[in-house]
Amino acid sequence: MDDRPRQMGSLRRAAIEFLYFGIKEARSCLFVALFFAAVLLVPCGGVAGIPRYDLLLVVAIAIQVWMVRAGLETMDELKAVCLFHVVGFALEAFKVSGGIKSWSYPDFAYTKVLGVPLFAGFMYAAIGSYIVQAWRLFDLRVRHHPPYWMAAVIAILIYANFFTHHYIGDYRWYLAACVLGLYSRTTVIFRPLDRDRQMPLMLAFVLIGFFIWLAENIGTFWGVWRYPNQMGAWSIVHLSKWSSWSLLVIMTFTMVASLKHIKAKIHIPAD
């Protein structure tokens, strides 16, 4: 019996499913795409005397308001996104402070607070927006999720390490080992088209962290912010930042998982 028709049918289905996957991914990245389009299009010198950072803040708020009014995000989801903004801003303020200076925002802005332009928090909120949107569009379900209190504790420790590693050492790899133990059995089930697919949740964390690292390279190349080694001439963001972003994604995921309508789709083993 000739298996070629069956193989062609399988290849065609795989191609269509991959296309739908790409479309849903693009839709999930709506806030990210629109915001980074603004980052690329707004001139360094601003427009009509309005500094670039201030314009980016206006654009970010406008996108967020539009998404809520268009029904693309609920008010509960907006509250979560706002929490990501606050968490991100606090981290930014610490990192750019005089005693740390991990990176800096070199341009002038009227909306700078503690050396951080207020639009910066939206870069963290964009990660939360992506996860919220993907959860809905892909009908995500999580199997073998660790108990919420364990996930919350590791998320808090991850966030704390971004601050404390300047004083008592960087424990990210110890935290990564704990995360691996917690989520080693966890899988995420998603539906690109009409069939359920699944992948290890840890792999999803790493992949999302990688794409954020790529976006960070774009942002520093355009001079939106700069690391100390990029002041003279731009260079690629150190690969170690990939691990930092992946850990931040885990923290963000934990915050999203606390939403009431999402908890119903998370399975926690009884034993």
Rank of each mutant, 00 (worst) to 15 (best):
M1A: 14
M1L: 11
D2F: 12
P5I: 14
R12K: 08
A15N: 07
I16L: 14
L19A: 15
Y20M: 10
I23C: 10
A26S: 03
S28R: 00
S28G: 12
A33F: 12
F36H: 14
F36S: 02
A37M: 15
A37P: 02
V39E: 07
L40F: 14
V42D: 05
G45K: 02
V47S: 11
V47T: 13
A48P: 04
R52A: 05
L55Q: 06
L55T: 03
L57Y: 15
I63E: 01
W66S: 10
W66M: 01
W66D: 03
L72G: 04
E73Q: 10
E73H: 09
E77V: 02
K79E: 04
A80Q: 10
A80P: 00
V81S: 08
V87G: 00
F89M: 06
A90C: 10
A90M: 09
L91N: 11
E92M: 06
E92F: 15
F94P: 05
V96G: 10
V96W: 04
V96M: 06
G98R: 07
I100L: 10
W103T: 13
S104E: 15
S104D: 13
Y110R: 14
K112N: 08
G115F: 00
V116L: 06
P117E: 11
L118P: 01
L118Q: 08
F119E: 06
S129C: 13
Y130G: 01
Q133V: 11
W135D: 07
R136M: 09
R136F: 11
L137R: 15
L137V: 10
F138C: 09
D139H: 14
R141K: 11
V142I: 15
P147N: 12
P147E: 05
M150S: 12
V153I: 15
V153T: 14
V153S: 12
I154G: 05
L157C: 07
Y159G: 08
H166S: 07
I168G: 08
G169C: 09
W173C: 07
L175D: 13
L175F: 13
L182T: 08
S184F: 13
R185F: 07
T186F: 12
T186W: 13
T187H: 10
R195P: 10
M199I: 00
P200L: 03
M202W: 12
M202K: 05
L203H: 11
F205I: 00
L207D: 00
W213A: 02
A215H: 07
T220Y: 09
F221Y: 04
G223F: 01
R226V: 11
Y227P: 06
P228I: 01
Q230R: 00
Q230Y: 00
M231K: 04
G232M: 03
A233V: 06
L239N: 07
S240R: 06
K241N: 02
W245E: 03
W245A: 04
S246K: 01
L248N: 02
V249D: 01
T252D: 04
L259Q: 12
L259H: 08
A264I: 14
K265L: 08
I266H: 01
I266N: 05
P269F: 00
A270W: 03
A270D: 08
A270F: 05
D271H: 14
